[in-house]
Amino acid sequence: MILKKSEIPTSEITPKQAYMNRRAFMAAAAATGVAAIAGERVSRMVRPAGVEAAEKLTVVNSPLSTTGVEVTPYEDITHYNNFYEFGVDKGDPAKNAGTLRTRPWSVKVEGLVKEPKTFDIDTLLKLKPMEERVYRFRCVEAWSMVIPWAGYSLSEFINACEPLPSAKYVQFLSLADSKQEPEIYNAHLNWPYSEGLRMDEAMHPLTLLTFGLYGEVLPNQDGAPVRVIVPWKYGFKSAKSIVKVKFVKSQPSTTWNDMAPQEYGFYSNVNPNVDHPRWSQKTERRIGFPIWKQRQPTLMFNGYGDQVAQLYAGMDLKKNY
């Protein structure tokens, strides 16, 4: 069903008011006058100081975009974040991520590759045409969103990295810099944040190397300037603000799996039949919905089973959670 061709990018069809908190809209309208609103997205005006106005991206439609879903408001996607480098509360990243410098930025590629390389962010932005991919996003904490990401399949980048056949896994390392991320050591995790995928998962066309959302470059708090999005896995598998990609022979050590292996498996595929030890994964709370509509059923592989189930054929998903 989701392979259906989608119409126009959300960035073009979503009316500005629809994804803005009404109150913020009114406040901004009062503060800046109607002329400004006509020309600019108002949520930008309520952005915290230090977070620069987002640049537009040129995006094309993708047949891999999920259709028939209600997209979460921009305001919520950018003000309800787990990004421990900027604090552990959901509102912290939006407040604190202004100190992240996304230029200059480069991504080092190491390990089992033909030769180690470094990609500049501007090279990465131009590597392939940017696509808009609307994906469901399911956090292991049982909340969810629907986000119009912008990027291209990670496989395109991996091909450019020229990994050796011996590379079986790919590891992503996020920025760990207490100067730019002053809150980082308040969270007791092993830094830098590390995540990983099996090579076939990383090469799957749904896996997205992501540079933007809502047709604009990623706001800092959403993992700028470049992150991964793996829509059928719990959100923590999708590393943010990536500075290094390593191709390795065996399963890499990953941050949350190290922290609490019984709670966060290496695979962490969205699975309503395998509960988190502390809460049920059968349902989820949709962010931005009114309280009585928030509770929604969780879909196997977050609704992407048709495309990804074959990656796990023959595997016991209760053991390999």
Binding site: N21, R22, R23, P73, E75, D76, H79, Y80, K90, W143, R285, I287, G288, F289, P290, I291, Q294, R295
Partner: peptide, 21 residues
């Protein structure tokens, strides 16, 4: 705020009202 979220502003209780309450 619960009343507001029913009548005018779905997010009067924040993006995740269940969690807030």
């Amino acid at each position: 705020h619960l009343y507001l979220s029913v009548t005018s502003e779905p997010t009067a209780l924040g993006p995740d009202p269940t969690h807030t309450v």
